[in-house]
């Protein structure tokens, strides 16, 4: 119990300081992901910061796995409205799979079976996941045209994508 008290005295102020000070500035996804390679569906190793640099539109980056039901539900919904997202709102969805060697070979047949239209990337040893401080999937980022992370969200419940649309509409004003 005493150990816990020490732990709490230490953590509570620390977390408060961190939360308050970090509200002051925005991070860019290119800085956070520097040096990290992901694999595309053709097996090519790509630097994620370069992908972000080249994308001049708005990005939705969604971390998922073939074994994560809420992730798949979220991406199914994003796929259903992808035409609208892509053409009317200049949004590209990047679905970053954290499936490890157990299930990474399933990813390509899985997404084709689903008929997802957006690019899917493999992060097999969770390197990008850790760089972007993602603890659990699903975890979704919205990144503006200058690569700033303007919104992030963990977990998924039906209706969350409506919040994404509001954020994106705000960026397109």
């Amino acid at each position: 119990m005493q150990r816990l008290l020490r732990f709490n005295c230490f953590f509570t102020p620390l977390i408060l300081i961190l939360l308050l000070s970090n509200a002051l500035y925005a991070q860019t996804v290119t800085e956070l992901s520097k040096g990290v390679k992901v694999e595309d569906m053709n097996g090519a190793a790509l630097s994620f910061d370069e992908i972000a640099e080249e994308d001049k539109g708005i990005m939705i980056i969604s971390f998922w796995a073939t074994w994560c039901k809420p992730c798949i539900q979220e991406l199914d919904f994003l796929n259903d409205m992808y035409d609208e997202l892509q053409e009317d709102m200049e949004v590209t969805v990047y679905a970053v799979s954290i499936d490890d060697a157990r299930s990474s070979k399933r990813v390509l047949p899985f997404i084709n079976g689903k008929g997802w239209e957006f690019p899917v990337l493999l992060d097999e040893n969770s390197l990008l996941k850790r760089k972007l401080n993602v603890l659990n999937v699903p975890h979704t980022f919205i990144v503006d045209r200058s690569n700033k992370i303007v919104y992030q969200h963990t977990s998924y419940v039906p209706g969350d994508e409506e919040e994404y649309l509001e954020i994106i509409e705000g960026l397109n004003k």
Partner: peptide
Amino acid sequence: IFFLIFLCFVQTPFAQIKDARISGDFY
């Protein structure tokens, strides 16, 4: 722990160095 506290207090000045960032997570 000293290192942690140190980082906490110097974070704001750090953030003002151009391009410097602090990121992290907690569970």
